[in-house]
């Protein structure tokens, strides 16, 4: 029975209507997922794997941990999609799940990301100054309070509007606005502090 189920459920072959899927909106894809379309889920996965991974990477500071978190988030999305009512955009909902998954991992880890723990992203032929900048960016983000870091990442990486961030985190719009302003000020101050201490 399992053998009969497995190929139908987890087949990785490309769908016949791949072009239609690629042109479909997120709303159409989530509706198709709710009707059991594995191909629609694969399309959502291919659209959002990179931003989800980037968000997780910035929150966790470790490339492997971020991959695990992003994968866990997608599995949670799949499990919860029958209950998704479309009140928020799919991306907002996904980023909320990624954020919660990462916050859960951070709580379990119960430690601040140290410079040693910050791993470089898997990148090819990055010039050394870019690597330095990337490490400093990671370090600065890790030193920011999670509340500020989360709104900043949802805005910059997730490209969510203030309304969407407010929905995703269950905050008033005014709080999102002020947290983003504080987050940018804090980022800039920490960056300058780190630059000076490195000179």
């Amino acid at each position: 029975m399992e053998e009969a189920l497995r190929p139908r459920l987890v087949s990785a072959e490309r769908p016949v209507d791949g072009q239609a899927l690629a042109a479909a909106s997120d709303v159409e894809l989530t509706a198709a997922c709710q009707n059991g379309s594995q191909a629609a889920f694969r399309e959502l996965l291919s659209r959002y794997r990179k931003p989800a991974l980037a968000l997780a990477y910035h929150m966790l500071g470790d490339a492997e941990d971020a991959e695990d978190a992003a994968q866990e988030a997608f599995v949670r999305v799949f499990q919860a999609i029958p209950r998704f009512r479309g009140q928020a955009a799919f991306s907002t909902w996904l980023y909320r799940i990624v954020t919660n998954t990462c916050l859960g991992r951070l709580r379990r880890r119960r430690e601040k990301i140290s410079l040693e723990r910050v791993s470089e992203p898997r990148s090819a032929d990055s010039p050394s100054h870019q690597v330095t900048n990337a490490l400093m960016t990671r370090q600065v983000l890790s030193m920011m309070p999670p509340k500020l870091r989360t709104v900043l990442l949802l805005r910059v990486e997730g490209r969510l509007s203030y309304r969407e961030i407010a929905d995703a985190l269950g905050l008033p719009m005014g709080t999102v606005r002020s947290r983003l302003s504080k987050a940018r000020t804090a980022f800039r101050k920490l960056w300058l502090d780190l630059s000076e201490s490195g000179d």
Partner: peptide, 22 residues
């Protein structure tokens, strides 16, 4: 911030691992 994630590369088996778990 975007420059950091721009360089991020997703593992080749990322989708496969998600689909296996699903």
């Amino acid at each position: 911030i975007r420059a950091v994630s721009h360089d991020l590369q997703v593992s080749q088996d990322f989708d496969q691992r998600v689909l296996r778990a699903v």
